[in-house]
Structure formats: C-alpha cells, structure tokens
C-alpha cells in the first residue's frame, strides 16, 4: 500500500508537517517495503485550491492514504472523492508515523478537521 505523509523538509526522520495542502513535501511510502521518496508538493504556494490540487497530486502518485495534522473542507472532500483515506497525527516523523500506521494506532478521520483553512 502507498501512503503519503506531509513534510516540511522532505526528510524521513525529521518531524512531519501538520499542514496538508500547503506542506512543502510529501513523503510517499510503500508500506510493504518501507521504501520512500520525497516529492515537492506542487500546490505548496497555490493561490487557491491548494487542498484539492495536493490531493490530485497524491492521487496521481498512487497514494491510498494520507497522514497530516489537519484537513480543510476542500481537501477532505477531494480525498473522499479520490478514495484516499485520511489520517491525522499530532506529532512524529514520517518513519514513526509509518510504524503507527502499520500498527493501526493512527486516527482515521471522516470529516474535515481544520475548519476554513482552504481558499
């Protein structure tokens, strides 16, 4: 399974980014092999619609789940439509979050958590 973790610096072992649509990087991880790659988020500085654009990027990258701090309503709606599952965390590195994902201890959300963050 392919999952994506938002990241400020594109690294596997430093703190993740709680921002979704406007994070600087996504760490795309294959949960079977633990292989990962870092991809710059093309929506990081989008004037509007960063959430949906980030989701389209993740969808094209084959991600089936996303892990971040919070989701705006637009991002969440788009994730749902794309069939990408949404998980949240307070803290952790992508590496730690992968372990928590595999252990089934990450919180999956079924509604937007970030209020009106989008535009």
């Amino acid at each position: 399974m392919i999952i994506a973790v938002s990241s400020p610096d594109g690294k596997f072992s430093t703190e993740f980014s709680p921002r979704f649509g406007r994070c600087n990087f996504f760490i795309i991880i294959d949960t079977d092999t633990r292989e990962w790659e870092s991809k710059p988020n093309p929506a990081a500085n989008a004037r509007g619609g960063a959430g949906p654009q980030a989701v389209q990027f993740l969808s094209a990258s084959g991600a089936e789940a996303a892990i971040t701090g919070r989701y705006g309503p637009n991002a969440f709606t788009t994730l749902k439509a794309a069939g990408i599952r949404a998980y949240i965390a307070d803290a952790g590195t992508p590496e730690e979050l992968l372990d928590r994902f595999l252990a089934g201890t990450l919180e999956e959300v079924n509604a937007a958590t970030g209020g009106e963050l989008h535009h």
Binding site: R22, N45, A46, R47, G48, A50, H119
Partner: peptide, 10 residues
C-alpha cells in the same frame, strides 16, 4: 483582493 490573497497564502 487577489494579489493580497496570494501574498498572504501560506
């Protein structure tokens, strides 16, 4: 308006 929203984004 538009350029301010762009400047404040992120």
């Amino acid at each position: 308006g538009c350029p301010v929203i762009s400047a404040a984004s992120g």
